[in-house]
Design a protein around this nucleic acid. Structure first.
Length: 586
RNA sequence: GCGCCCGUAGUUCAGCUGGAUAGAAUUUCGGAUUCCGAUUCCGAAGGUCAGAGGUUCGAAUCCUCUCGGGCGCGCCA
């Protein structure tokens, strides 16, 4: 609709230029917007105001001129000049009815488009270290990433969802050591648990599995392990040095194969848990990408070598540095430590290099906002490698703060309050969690009201939207009970009976749905869809309370039922994109 | 100290990439209503868009500075 009006204006402009009434060298981007106030018509353009200065004419005069050259159109009822020079378009009443057959025909596909033209986009999200269960902070990234990916898919991108598994590095070694030490305790060893080790209950579970499957095969005396160990933190030592020493002893005593067995058991147990958790949350991936594979297949070394060839590296204090300051980073970064071990950053460069080598036309990373300082160095590395860093979008998600009874809910592991995503899902339902996580802009801190998310009331927007869907379904059931039937064709043939203001408002809202999906997808803003659905539900409930659908007059009844069916369809389509169910009864 | 994000009604938030009188929900107050399915509707009140400059036909939106809040500034991952 917008495009049709823009086209009319373009033709009018061209005519004015052809006749010499306006300079020929003007080629403004023609903007057509929905009006906020219906007294301003349906659509409006600021073209005359934009052109006023370069054309040397007063905006209202210019608007007059453009309107005089406007081609006739079947959809435009009248055109007005208003305010400082807006050109307002009032559409013919019939045109807004056209959305009804469109929606009914397209069904589940209404709102989908081919805007993305099948371009390959990678969306990487969550990617939490597999050192423990997902917590509520990860939940927002999961819900947000899943919806961004689904929105992009809906508008025609070929989306590849990926989870980067940090299955290498020191944190994983600490995890393996934690499991092993708990296993030793299960074997009956008495030992001081390191202050820097993982202490969650899930460690005990994994250790129990280890013990069940291997009996005492990996048992060693604490004396044997502690033989030469530095002091732990409580004893005045350094907890980092201490845990590293434990890991070194473990690797020495268990040898490669046993160490790997513990390591892999821990990794796989936790990864399985994360996979299961996300799957229940409706978050699915095309690929789980292993960090370790990057080291194993030489990608990390290759990335470092390519950076060296690019001339943006140097050696200092025995380490190899990437000169990221050449690309605007605030300081240079180490790639290879003085002990010869590559850094996490080096792996991440290799990973991003790999993303571009795999041929994605666009790459989206979704990170917690606490990683924002990391963005410049990754982009710097991509530029140094010769890639177009603008093809990488890093979307930062701010923290979610849980509220219960108006009070901030504690999120520490120590207190009894829940911390995991699984517990949150259980408490407020998957649907509410998905909706609440995405109902705010990602760069906005999220106040997650647990009581509201659980409440079955209109105050809860998720409930309000679902209820609109269920209510339409209920109307259809009522219809059958009253021995009426829905004659769609009769309704479609008599849409002009939908003359109430409420009906007109709903029609306008419905027609905007495809634009909302496009905007939400392209701007990576799921909250736009969340708000839209709430507004649509509000329109519908208001209509429901003002008018009866199941009336004696079959023509009016069927026309209204067509409209209400459209509300149901669009609500269902939108909820599906948000990963929220659309129940037929509640 | 430097960098990034945020600051809009009592509260929680929108504001369609610069448009017309800044909108919802909720709260408060005043009415109506007992229904296809409850958890209903209508109206009113509520704002120095943190503050000050600037850019222009036009600024909550863009730029600069100040104030306030969050986060980040490892040869950790």
């Amino acid at each position: 609709m917008k495009n049709q009006i823009a086209e009319l204006l373009a033709q009018a402009l061209a005519k004015c230029q052809g006749s010499g009434a306006l300079p020929a060298d003007l080629s403004p981007a023609i903007q057509v917007d929905h009006t906020r106030d219906s007294s301003h018509g349906d659509l409006a353009s600021n073209l005359a105001m934009v052109l006023a200065k370069p054309a040397g004419k007063k905006p209202r005069e210019l608007a007059e001129l453009l309107i005089s050259q406007l081609p006739t159109s079947t959809i435009v009822d009248k055109v007005e000049i208003a305010g400082p020079g807006f050109i307002n378009f009032f559409l013919k009443a019939d045109t807004q009815f056209a959305i009804i057959p469109t929606i009914l025909k397209a069904g589940e596909d209404f709102g989908r488009s081919n805007l993305g033209q099948g371009k390959r986009v990678q969306v990487e999200f969550v990617s939490a270290n597999p050192t423990g269960p997902l917590h509520v902070g990860h939940g927002r990234g999961a819900a947000y990433g899943a919806v961004v990916a689904d929105l992009l898919a809906a508008v025609g991108y070929n989306v590849h969802r990926e989870y980067y598994v940090n299955d290498a590095g020191r944190q994983m070694n600490i995890l393996a050591a934690s499991v092993w030490l708990r296993y030793l305790e299960l074997c009956g060893e008495e030992l001081p648990f390191p202050s820097n080790a993982y202490k969650g209950d899930y460690i005990w579970d994994i250790a129990a599995t280890l013990h069940r499957e291997n009996a005492e095969a990996m048992r060693h005396n604490w004396d044997e392990i502690s033989h030469p160990l530095p002091a732990d933190e409580p004893d005045g030592g350094d907890k980092e040095e201490y845990i590293d020493a434990i890991i070194a002893r473990m690797q020495h005593l268990l040898r490669d194969d046993q160490y790997r067995l513990v390591f892999d058991l821990a990794l796989n147990s936790i990864l399985d848990d994360i996979r299961d958790d996300l799957a229940h949350f409706g978050v699915l991936y095309e690929e789980w990408y292993s960090e370790r594979s990057l080291t194993d297949n030489g990608a990390v070394m290759r990335a470092i070598e390519r950076l060296q060839h690019s001339g943006h590296t140097y050696e200092l204090d025995g380490a190899i540095w990437f000169k990221s300051t050449d690309y605007g980073d605030e300081k240079d970064r180490v790639l290879v430590r003085d002990n010869g071990v590559t850094t996490y950053f080096a792996s991440d460069i290799a990973y991003h290099m790999d993303k571009f080598e795999r041929g994605f036309e666009h790459v989206i990373d979704i990170w917690g906002a606490d990683h924002h300082g990391y963005v410049p160095r990754v982009k710097a590395a991509l530029q140094a490698l010769g890639y177009d860093a603008s093809k990488l979008d890093v979307l930062l998600v701010q923290f979610a703060i849980l509220y219960r009874g108006g009070e901030k809910a504690q999120m520490s592991t120590r207190s009894g309050e829940f911390v995991t995503l699984r517990e949150l899902r259980k408490e407020v339902s998957n649907d509410a969690a998905r909706y609440f996580y995405v109902m705010r802009k990602s760069e906005q801190h999220l106040d997650f009201d647990l009581d509201l998310a659980k409440s079955q009331s209109n105050d809860n927007p998720m409930y309000y939207i679902q209820y609109a869907h269920a209510r339409v379904c209920s109307v259809m059931r009522q219809l059958a009970e009253k021995l009426f039937s829905f004659d769609r064709d009769e309704g479609l043939a008599n849409l002009n009976r939908l003359s109430e203001a409420h009906e007109s408002a709903i029609l306008t809202r419905l027609a905007r749905y495809p634009e909302i999906v496009e905007a939400a997808a392209q701007l990576h803003e799921p909250h736009q869809l969340a708000h839209y659905l709430r507004d649509l539900a509000n329109d519908f409930h208001t209509y429901y309370n003002a008018h009866q659908f199941i009336v004696e007059d079959s023509v009016l009844r069927n026309a209204r039922l067509c409209l209400v069916q459209c509300v149901r369809q669009v609500t269902a389509n939108g909820l599906q994109l948000l990963g929220v169910s659309a129940p037929e009864s509640m």
